[in-house]
Simulated assay, not measured.
Amino acid sequence: MLLNVSERGPEHPTPEKTLPVVLLHGLFGRARNLGFVQRKLATTRRTLAMDLRNHGNSPHGPMSYPAMAQDVLDTMEHLHASPAIMLGHSMGGKTAMMAALTHPTAIRALIVVDIAPAQGGFDRLDLPDNLEQLQFPPHLDQRSTNDLLRPYIASDAVRQLMAQNIRQGDNPGWAIGLHDIQAAMPDIMGWPHLAPDLRYEGPTLFIRGENSPYISPGNYAAMRALFPNHRLESIRGAGHWVHADAPQRFTELVEEFLANIP
Rank of each mutant, 00 (worst) to 15 (best):
V22S: 07
F257P: 02
A31K: 01
D74C: 11
S90N: 09
A183Y: 00
T43G: 12
G173F: 02
G61E: 09
E77F: 07
A116C: 14
L101A: 04
Y220N: 11
D129H: 15
E132S: 11
M223A: 11
I111W: 01
P192T: 06
M97S: 03
H103C: 14
P137I: 14
I153Y: 07
L226P: 01
F36W: 05
Q160E: 13
D180E: 15
H193R: 06
L253M: 11
P247L: 05
D156C: 00
P262D: 14
V37K: 01
P13Q: 04
P203N: 08
H179I: 14
P192N: 06
A175Q: 11
Q164I: 08
H12Q: 07
P104I: 05
N260Y: 09
F28Q: 05
P203I: 01
A184Q: 03
D74T: 14
M68E: 08
R53K: 10
G61P: 07
Q38R: 11
A222S: 14
F28T: 02
P62G: 03
P10K: 00
S64Y: 09
R32A: 08
E210S: 05
G9S: 14
P138G: 13
M185R: 11
G209M: 01
D180A: 12
L125E: 02
I261H: 05
L101C: 04
L258S: 05
S90P: 07
E256S: 12
M63G: 00
M68V: 12
I188P: 01
S144L: 02
T251R: 14
P213G: 13
D180L: 06
W174C: 13
L3W: 00
M1F: 06
M189K: 07
M98K: 06
Y220M: 13
P138Y: 14
A244Y: 02
G88W: 02
R159F: 04
R124A: 11
R208D: 12
F136R: 02
D180N: 14
P192I: 05
P217I: 09
Q133Y: 07
R249V: 08
R167P: 10
A109R: 05
I188R: 00
G173T: 01
A184V: 00
P213T: 10
T44K: 15
G121R: 01
V72Q: 03
Q70H: 10
L198C: 08
E7Q: 15
G121F: 03
H89F: 11
W174H: 12
Q182K: 15
L131C: 11
H55R: 05
I85M: 08
R199P: 00
I85D: 04
Q248N: 12
P186L: 04
M50C: 04
P62H: 11
R199A: 09
G173Q: 03
Q135T: 15
E256H: 08
L198V: 11
P172W: 10
A195Q: 13
K40E: 15
I115M: 15
G202A: 14
